Each structure stands twice: as structure tokens, then as C-alpha cells.
Amino acid sequence: MATGGRRGAAAAPLLVAVAALLLGAAGHLYPGEVCPGMDIRNNLTRLHELENCSVIEGHLQILLMFKTRPEDFRDLSFPKLIMITDYLLLFRVYGLESLKDLFPNLTVIRGSRLFFNYALVIFEMVHLKELGLYNLMNITRGSVRIEKNNELCYLATIDWSRILDSVEDNYIVLNKDDNEECGDICPGTAKGKTNCPATVINGQFVERCWTHSHCQKVCPTICKSHGCTAEGLCCHSECLGNCSQPDDPTKCVACRNFYLDGRCVETCPPPYYHFQDWRCVNFSFCQDLHHKCKNSRRQGCHQYVIHNNKCIPECPSGYTMNSSNLLCTPCLGPCPKVCHLLEGEKTIDSVTSAQELRGCTVINGSLIINIRGGNNLAAELEANLGLIEEISGYLKIRRSYALVSLSFFRKLRLIRGETLEIGNYSFYALDNQNLRQLWDWSKHNLTITQGKLFFHYNPKLCLSEIHKMEEVSGTKGRQERNDIALKTNGDQASCENELLKFSYIRTSFDKI
């Protein structure tokens, strides 16, 4: 039985969820670079991206490699990797027998973001014989899940209580170790020597080791999670996991709180800001991140802002960003909400898709409305799209047979046209069989910064309504002859009103 693990408890099935942008060198404390989270699957090609990484700022997932063999891993080693800020997950990587050479110096898994409450997941690794993470000293947050690894031993010899604050939620089941077939031998045991430290858990006094050649490092209890030197002297209180010299914040392997210019500090002093819960960055760093993602459509890219001495992905609820200094300031009234469309555009074809934009005031991208039916549609669209004030790209209304009016965009005031449909149009209306009105132009103002209007096959939309939009939106004169079809717009509506004058002759039985 794995020490510190839980057996036999019912657990939810383990679901495996399925960018080499360097964020800056980590400095003297770390020998390499800070790398983003990685999802490495199918083959070993991307694994080489770990070569210079000291910190993975995010998670590391290595999974679904069915053609790899043990010899493929023999020359692979990433000794610079010290810390993973989120979680480490391995799933069905064939041929991998140990992690001792792959990650010989991995010391800390912070667990800032977890995989279903777990910071370390080893699942269905069919050839893994031992973990071998002999320098792993601290899992700051989260638990361990090690399950269905039929060859995995050296679990009962690990004292997880020396690595985690609590072992109650560890789930370590259905491994070879369960069948008591392992016969784990710690260093020196074969020669009758006791080389590794022994600890007591559940009444068992057991030597602690990761492999037959690597003991588990056990520091004096007084050192807590700070770690200790090879001689057993406690590291500085700002260290986490390990250090090369005692009581020196510049000799830590990793930091308990924050890293700044080669030393570990309790908090980031001005003019620095907390970033990702582990390091200090200056304003320029946060500003660069903001600008890199301002026009990016890459998933996970955030326009970072500053709030409460932190550089964070977005302002919290009730705050909006001051564009001059990136500071989050309290909103006066309802907060603006910028919604970034991942692929640059979004099609609204149902109430469900409209709900995804609920509360958005600025759309960074283009909207395509293609709704053919739905219950209580006008009210639903207004509830979900009615706060949109600005669209950076274009607005396209296409084959939306259920629409009679666009009044559900009740606050839309600006279409920038930074991206144009077919390279020309910022407003595009095609084949809307029941569209009769755009907006009530006596109450609604709309500016279209650039781009043209396109109207074709809107049989109940009168040309007068379209011409009014040209005047109000500032697009009059931009359109070419064929942009607004004269014969297919309003051709099934009563669009022309003329005053009919009647004269009559009164007659009676005795007068003409």
C-alpha cells in the first residue's frame, strides 16, 4: 500500500482533458527560462521544448504516446526543470519506465491550478516501474492521483506527508504495488545497510526511497516546507523545498512566496507586481503582455491589467481597466465587458449561442446573426445582446428569417469595421425574408467608422429604411451602385405612401 494514499474509496472516473512563447529569463536562482504550460502528445517531438525550461508557468501534460519505446527515452533528460506552477499529468506514455532521468531536479509542483483537485496525476502508464522524482520536495496545493499503472512499484516507500501538507485526498490505487509483488529495495538494503531515512506512518517504520538508488530526502521537522541542505541544516524561511546553503534567500532552489532578481522575498516591493503567484514583474512586463494579447485571437491570451499590486489576466467583477495605466478602477454604474472572439468572429444561430455573449459591452471581433427560429426570440436576444455598444469588426445579418427588427441591439452605437466582410463591408444584410426595420432612427444613433453597407434580398425592408441608415451611420456616399439592390429590397412591402385627393359631386333626387 502506498504510504499516505487512500484505498478502496469510491472515486469519480478520471477524465483526461485534452506555445513556446518565453516569458522571460528567471535569473540567477533558476538555471534556465520560464516556459508556458505545455500539452505534449502523440510523439516526442515537442518534448524537446523543455530543454531550457527551469519553470513551467502553467501545467505540463505528457500523454497518448503509443509508439514510443524505452530506448526512445534513454537520452532524454531535462535537468534544468525545477518547478511547475500548476500540475504534472502523465497518461498512456508507452515505453517510459521512470522519471528519474527525465526530470531529475523537479523540486516543486505548486498546484496553482489543479487537474480535478490533483497536482500530480500518473494514470495508465503501462510501462512505468517507478516514479523516480527523487528531488520532489513540495506539492504546495492539491493532491496526488496514481492509478492503474500495472508495473509501478516504489510507492509504499514514499512518505507523501513530507511532500504535501495533507495526504487525506491522495488516491493511489490499482498499481502493481497493490499486489505486494514489488519487493522494493532501498539503497544499501541488499548489503544489509540502512542508507535512507525511515519514518513512521500508520504504525509502520519504513525506509523512504524513490528507487533502488535514490533515497527520499527527509528534512528535520523544524525546517517545515522550506527544505534543508545535504547536511540537514534548514533553508531560509522564504525558500521552498530545498537550498544549497542554509538561511540564505539567494540560495533557495525555489521560493515559498515570490522570486525577485535572484532572491526569494515575502512580497513584491514597489515598483514590482505579483505575477502568477510566484514571481515579481515590473510595469513594462505587464504592459507588454497586455499589448501582445490586445489584437491576438490565441486562446488563453489575456490583456493583463494591474489590481491590488498584482498583474492579473482581467479586472475583477465591479472594476474596469483604465487604459492609460492598466489599473483596475471601480465602475460607475454597470461595468464594461470586452469579449474577445477566439477566431475573430462568432455566429449567433440560437439563443444558446447568444447567451455566451451575455453582459458583453464591447465585441472584439465580428458578429454573424443567422437565426431561423426560436421561442420568445426578441426578448431572449435583447437579454443577451442588448448591452453590446461596440463591435470592432463587422455585423452580418444573414438568412435570419425569424427577425423582424434589429432593435434587440438596443445599445449598439459603434461598428468600427477594423475587419470587413469580403474585404469591403462593415454591415452586411443578406436574404432576411421578414426583416422590416433596422432601428427606430428617431431614437437610435449608430456610427460606422469604416467599410460599406450591403443589402440584398431583404424583400420587406424598404429602401427608405436603408437610406436612413446611410445618413445616420455616416456611410452615405461610400456605397457603390450594386451594394444596395434596388429590386430585391422592399419588393414585397408597401414602401411608397402617396396622399390621394378626392373630389365629389353631391346629387339628390331633384338636383344634379
Rank of each mutant, 00 (worst) to 15 (best):
T140Q: 08
G333T: 05
P187H: 04
V144P: 02
H290P: 04
L120V: 09
D247N: 05
P249L: 07
S98P: 00
F66A: 08
E314I: 02
K310P: 02
C255Y: 01
K251R: 09
K67P: 06
T140F: 07
T68M: 14
H274T: 14
Y304R: 03
G262A: 05
K148T: 01
F285C: 04
D177L: 10
C293S: 03
L240T: 15
N309A: 09
T199D: 13
T250L: 10
T199P: 09
L260C: 01
L289E: 09
H291Y: 15
C53E: 00
A198Q: 02
P334Q: 08
L60W: 00
N202D: 09
I139P: 01
N295Y: 13
H214L: 06
I40S: 00
H28E: 07
K310H: 07
T329M: 10
E57S: 07
C328E: 01
N325I: 00
F115H: 02
P246Q: 15
M65K: 01
H28S: 04
C234G: 02
C153L: 02
Q216T: 11
A198V: 07
D159S: 09
Y319W: 15
E33W: 12
K310Y: 05
L289H: 15
F285E: 02
M38F: 02
S324G: 09
Y273T: 09
K191G: 12
E151A: 13
V108I: 13
D39V: 15
P70T: 10
G192M: 13
E51I: 15
H226L: 09
C328T: 03
N149Q: 04
Q245N: 13
N138L: 10
K129A: 10
V93L: 15
I62T: 00
T329G: 13
L260S: 05
G241A: 12
M321Y: 14
L131T: 10
P220V: 05
Q276P: 03
A190M: 05
H290F: 14
Y273L: 05
Y118N: 04
G241Y: 08
E33F: 01
D261V: 10
E266W: 15
I158N: 05
T157E: 14
G111C: 01
N135C: 05
L63N: 01
I122C: 07
K251A: 00
G333F: 06
H59A: 06
L64Q: 02
Y87L: 00
L174P: 13
M137K: 11
H226I: 08
I139A: 02
T189M: 07
T211L: 15
E180R: 11
H302L: 05
C255D: 00
M65P: 02
L96K: 01
C234F: 01
D165S: 05
D165N: 05
S225Y: 13
A254V: 13
N135F: 02
E238A: 10
D86V: 00
Q216S: 09
A198Y: 12
I122H: 01
S225R: 08
I201T: 06
T85D: 01
D75L: 09
W210T: 05
P316K: 03
L332R: 07
T199R: 07
P313Q: 04
D184C: 15
P187Q: 05
D169R: 12
E124I: 00
K294G: 13
N282C: 02
G95A: 11
L174V: 14
C228T: 03
Q276R: 08
